[in-house]
Amino acid sequence: MQRVALGVYLEAVTVAKLLLSVQGLTKKFGGVKALSAVGMDVKQGSIHAVIGPNGAGKTTLINLITGRQRADSGRIWYCGGTIDNLSSEARARHGIVRTFQITSIFPSFSALDNAVLAIQAREGRNFGCWSPVRDDKGIQVSAREYLVQVGLGDHEDTHAAHLSHGQRRLLELAMVLATQPRLLILDEPMAGLSIAESKSMVELLGALKCENTLLMIEHDMDVVFSLADYVTVLDRGVAIACGVPEKIRSDIAVQKAYLGEVD
């Protein structure tokens, strides 16, 4: 019975080119159900947005996918296999890499060294004690490229702690890109950005779409509807709607739970 279901599932995965699929994810914190039986499919090469009011369980969902927290029940499929038993570090090495809602960088490093460390994380073999990383042309050049990609090319020697909030968000994105992720997870990439900054962030993310798969939590509806191919709506831990942006916009349940306040 189970085997048949698995076969059907794997077929579905191959046909739809799913990169990530979560099924029946449930997570409780004490008596509070943060997520109940949430299902979601992320297609290869798409931008998938997760929206919902505060406390809907969006960040919890990401924490479960990246392995920062463990689900009480449910399964996570990634690249055709389950990753439920993998540590968060192992998931990252398999290409599930995230940014944080509160920007997480190495503040005592230069911007360039932040990117260098991300490349080191991807490459492994980090017990080298004798050759200075500064003399490693390959890693330095490639780190610089990632900084240029996000528009921080002029700031490579700047201490990360001295970067502006927007620049730090870009730096974190550069680091995540430097790990060459297969599934890039962004937790509110626009939070705290100025209008100009978020405009260039939208362009940047749009450009990433060709080569990457993005899963992002975002509050800014304009951004969501301009960038996302698919949207999942969470409300009080339940996925109440899922589909293309136009469908979500017209969904009555969504309007009631979320957009209704606006209209």
Partner: peptide
């Protein structure tokens, strides 16, 4: 030897652990 070590790959990882271990783990480093 220590000056070489702290400038090398291992030293970078060590300094990274001190600076922000959560970030390093989220990048895939055990």
């Amino acid at each position: 030897a220590k000056s070489r070590l702290i400038a090398g790959r291992f030293g970078m990882i060590l300094k990274g652990i001190k600076s922000n271990e959560t970030r390093l783990q989220a990048l895939g480093v055990s």
